[in-house]
Design a protein around this nucleic acid. Sequence first.
DNA 1: AATGAATGAGTCTTCATTCAT
DNA 2: CATGAATGAAGACTCATTCAT
Lengths: 225, 225, 225, 225
Amino acid sequence: MPKDALGNIATDKRERVLREAALAFAEHGFSRTDMAALAKRCGIAKGSIYNYFESKDELYLYVCRDGLERSRVAVWGGVDPAWNIFQVIEHTFREGVRFARAHPEYVKLYLSIASVGLEGFAAALSTEVEKPTADRLKELIRAGITARIVDRDVDVAQLAWLINNTYVMTLAALVSEHFRVRLQVYLQVPSDAHGALSDRQVTALRDRVVAMITDCLKPKPAHKR
Amino acid sequence: MPKDALGNIATDKRERVLREAALAFAEHGFSRTDMAALAKRCGIAKGSIYNYFESKDELYLYVCRDGLERSRVAVWGGVDPAWNIFQVIEHTFREGVRFARAHPEYVKLYLSIASVGLEGFAAALSTEVEKPTADRLKELIRAGITARIVDRDVDVAQLAWLINNTYVMTLAALVSEHFRVRLQVYLQVPSDAHGALSDRQVTALRDRVVAMITDCLKPKPAHKR
Amino acid sequence: MPKDALGNIATDKRERVLREAALAFAEHGFSRTDMAALAKRCGIAKGSIYNYFESKDELYLYVCRDGLERSRVAVWGGVDPAWNIFQVIEHTFREGVRFARAHPEYVKLYLSIASVGLEGFAAALSTEVEKPTADRLKELIRAGITARIVDRDVDVAQLAWLINNTYVMTLAALVSEHFRVRLQVYLQVPSDAHGALSDRQVTALRDRVVAMITDCLKPKPAHKR
Amino acid sequence: MPKDALGNIATDKRERVLREAALAFAEHGFSRTDMAALAKRCGIAKGSIYNYFESKDELYLYVCRDGLERSRVAVWGGVDPAWNIFQVIEHTFREGVRFARAHPEYVKLYLSIASVGLEGFAAALSTEVEKPTADRLKELIRAGITARIVDRDVDVAQLAWLINNTYVMTLAALVSEHFRVRLQVYLQVPSDAHGALSDRQVTALRDRVVAMITDCLKPKPAHKR
DNA sequence: AATGAATGAGTCTTCATTCAT
DNA sequence: CATGAATGAAGACTCATTCAT
């Protein structure tokens, strides 16, 4: 969808544009991001952006897609096909949290695609983004049931949804003021003066959440009989 | 915070302004909502809005707050203090879903306070909105444990968070394109041509979700022994 | 020119309106003075001003005229018809300075009628305001020549103009940032931290200026022969 | 202070903008000058002005400064360092009057910086504008005293102030309705139907004023003895 | 491909004035 | 005569996009 020119420029310039655009959109939101200011951040001329992309909309869509792909690679890239659901959850939550801390802008962009006023974008991305994860989670749960490491009575789809809800809410808490406050109100995690969570707290939180999910998956003793 | 004039005008005019503003902000988002167009929708002159509110920002904040209060009343207003956690969940999910279908705009506004670029607003509202629900849920779970209708080993705070996550995601699916698609991808709920969920589907979904939560809460057979 | 209503309201309310209007116009200038804010300062409703005056323009004109009349009374009111030019200058400069310190707003309004963009107003007021003073000054100088206390060779009209120029510039320095700075640059009068002139400095300045004028008027020794 | 773009555009376009802005501000005053109308006068788009200047305020300040500099060059540019005070007064009044007739807008802008409501601007400009002239005048008077062409008893600072007061009032009379009326009331200069002064009258007026000043400076016969 | 000046529709906000109560 | 809500034209400023160089 971007213009050919995007492929013809130096790699580091392309990376710079995509990075700064992601940061800008994440920081100010779509509407409040100023193309002129963005160009300046990128160290290029205003007009140059329009050599790479047709419009602000297209740039936004591309940056979102690109960011979601980067997330996917970071979180699922190292997943071993041989792993079971517990190993995968352990891994994806760990990598997801790490990625959210390293690149909050991409998580923010993910959250923003659900934003009011941007539904036109969402339609294009939602399935594309959610389907692969949903399918893998469900497949892993089913495999877990077969392997008798997951309770046989669970509602597979529902549980996959719950796991991903938890994942999304956990990452959201790391990048969004609102979700961080919400999480703290529920889980009573103290925050420092600026409201940020420490590495230690984040790790503890992640482990606590993973434990909860594991607990939901585990075969119930009563049923083992 | 609004100007005195807001309190001096006819009730139905005030309601009209608040309703139309909520609809407009929910439909287009904060930035893309045009004050002139909004005034026209309200059937008043552009300048009149500025007799009621200092600025677009103040109007937005007021409308959000107002909408959140309306949600609270609709969902928690009919809760009987004598009810246990299961009854309350049953009730709040039922009323929450009903409210979301009747007034998707308010749910959208709730989701929007987490939006990028509006974090200044969020700070003012997040705790105010989340705390009461969090406290009540946790209190109900604790009471349930005491009454031996809830598993004694659950992590109270975590479970309250999980319940509310589920609530939020369910309602979000009713008002947001992205969350609806996401839910359908996970739960494989079919949608009609326009992507909307039928009443029947929504009811079934709600019951399925409530059942899952109930299942998480119930004392585990293994522990009963 | 004002409406009848102005004459029908309590005297203290009328005084309040005229005083606050003078202060407001002097502080912000005509264009930047807000009728709503002015009404609030006056402790009356916005609409009430329009019961007294047809328009902002009319109010402004009336306030200017009123202020100029007050100046005239304050400065020329106590002038004894028997006094000579030196006594009158002594008196008017003393009272003028006193008035400017007590009511800088009226002096500011005088200066403002010369402002660009308000020439329509000026036309109505200029002659009305300047003529009486010009005539009295010239008459006094002529009488001084007859009485041989003023040099017989002076250009009467020119000197009257010069005296009034000096008067205007002196008062202007007391109420206007620019003219104060200008005067200080020329006369090297030090100012305090806020740039204001002390009573002592003002008195000294006034006497110095009056002395200069007196010097211009006095018969030249060379001519006495 | 203006943006870089101002320096990058064609010289004639820049000159056009500065000229039209000076004319517009001088004609209507700051507040009543409409940026959209100004842009049209300049033959450019509304937004273009904002490529050159941050705001209306900045444009105004720049135009004033620029105009004052032009005045300075026009009036003082041709002054020969060897000239005495009489020659300089003769020259500056002649050139000042010529400039005021050719570019009344710049003289109006000078007068406007003293206007009520614009005092913020004045602070920045007053000293900058007045100091050089004040210093040169005082130096010339002092040199005149040394050369025995100026009365040794004059108050140098005061006389410099008086000379400049006269200069300002004379030029003001050429560009401002109020000051013209005021001057005519004092000096009984007749005006034509439109109130304007003819070239002949202006020249006569100028010579009369210069003569008065010269008279104030000249050594008094009494002292010559 | 790069630049950045030019554009003008669009947006928020102000404010003098009116008028129903 | 008092009030203050209502009006809508006006005005400063923004910004995505274009295009000549």
